[in-house]
């Protein structure tokens, strides 16, 4: 099934190539478990493109940068492969006029979910995974101890298990057939609700425990497709000086408040911040909580309608209750 989709992807990329100056996709990494982004500038490299449940990177993170750098000569476009969640990041960039739609050729990949490597390692218990294969709903994992089988559902990333948009919401061409969503809006914020059920002291203790591990490596920020002011991030500027080099809790809390509040009403829940965190801090939860608030308060979900303005970048004189 995957090889069918892969050849379909190659075919559609070949067809689109005459209009493209660059195509951003995924390629095989150093083993079966890893993929890396690939930046194709030569049609001979299209065969490198892959599509499987390991294509974890949100390629929308490269979009704003390449849009700014591209010349747009001969009306050539930038091609980009997106999953459902990635397409929302792209729409969020469009909502803020950070990129122009007509400069992009979007290859949409309906996605059944991406495998969480940490879960796979934890479940397998193996020190080294030799190879791995996905057949329909099963993951077959080969290690020195033998072959283990897991249902695909069990090893998916947290964001995929609460996914409401498996199909890209914006695309020029679709690879494969559209899928039915796994959850509805009702269940999507279950993880946030679980924390909300704790007492205030328990919540503080929870976040103190989690954020105490933070190294302030800023990987979460760097992986975020919507953290678009990276070179001028106030977490690192001296003027204004929001953060010091102290490695104590207030600074760590402050950094995550900066990241989360700058994404309030903008975060598309692609989960990249959480995936790249070397300390396995559930940082995406903070943004999900904010999204729940903006949904309830301002009836807005980021990255759905390219025409809508994010709610905190605008106002409504007529609204009441706040």
């Amino acid at each position: 099934m995957n090889s069918d989709l892969r050849s379909e992807l190659h075919k559609k990329a070949e067809q689109a190539w005459p209009d493209l100056e660059l195509l951003i996709g995924w390629q095989a990494g150093y083993d079966d478990l890893h993929t890396t982004p690939v930046f194709i500038r030569d049609s001979a490299e299209i065969s490198k493109l892959i599509w499987n449940p390991w294509c974890t990177q949100n390629l929308a993170v490269y979009v704003a940068k390449h849009f700014a750098a591209s010349s747009g000569k001969d009306d050539k476009k930038i091609g980009v492969c997106v999953k459902g969640c990635d397409s929302r990041s792209l729409i969020a960039l469009l909502q803020e006029n950070l990129v122009a739609r007509e400069r992009f050729y979007i290859i949409g990949m309906p996605c059944k979910g991406i495998v969480d490597l940490r879960k796979l390692h934890a479940l397998s218990g193996a020190a080294r995974i030799l190879s791995v294969q996905v057949n329909a709903e099963q993951v077959a994992l080969k290690s020195a101890a033998g072959v283990l089988h897991f249902p695909l559902d069990e090893v998916l990333m947290r964001k995929c298990r609460r996914c409401r948009y498996p199909n890209p919401l914006i695309h020029d061409v679709l690879v494969g057939d559209p899928l039915t969503p796994r959850t509805d809006a009702h269940e999507a914020y279950n993880d946030v609700a679980a924390i909300e059920r704790l007492s205030l002291q328990e919540r503080l203790a929870f976040w103190q425990g989690e954020l105490d591990r933070c190294l302030r490596c800023y990987a979460c920020r760097n992986a975020c497709p919507l953290c678009v002011c990276q070179d001028r991030c106030i977490a690192e500027t001296r003027d204004p000086k929001w953060l010091t080099q102290y490695m104590h809790l207030p600074e760590k809390f402050m950094f995550h408040f900066i990241h989360a509040l700058h994404l309030a009403g903008r975060c598309t829940e692609c989960g990249e911040c959480e995936r790249v965190c070397p300390m396995e801090i559930p940082v995406a939860l903070i943004k999900e909580a904010l999204n729940k608030i903006t949904l309830e308060l301002l009836d807005f979900e980021a990255g759905l309608d390219p025409q809508r303005v994010p709610p905190l970048l605008t106002f409504d004189a007529g609204e009441t209750g706040i």
């Binding site: 328990e202 919540r203 809390f253 408040f257 903070i286 909580a289 608030i293």
Partner: peptide, 9 residues
């Protein structure tokens, strides 16, 4: 509304 989620009253 976000402060209580982080454990701040």
């Amino acid at each position: 509304r976000m402060l209580p989620f982080m454990g701040i009253d």
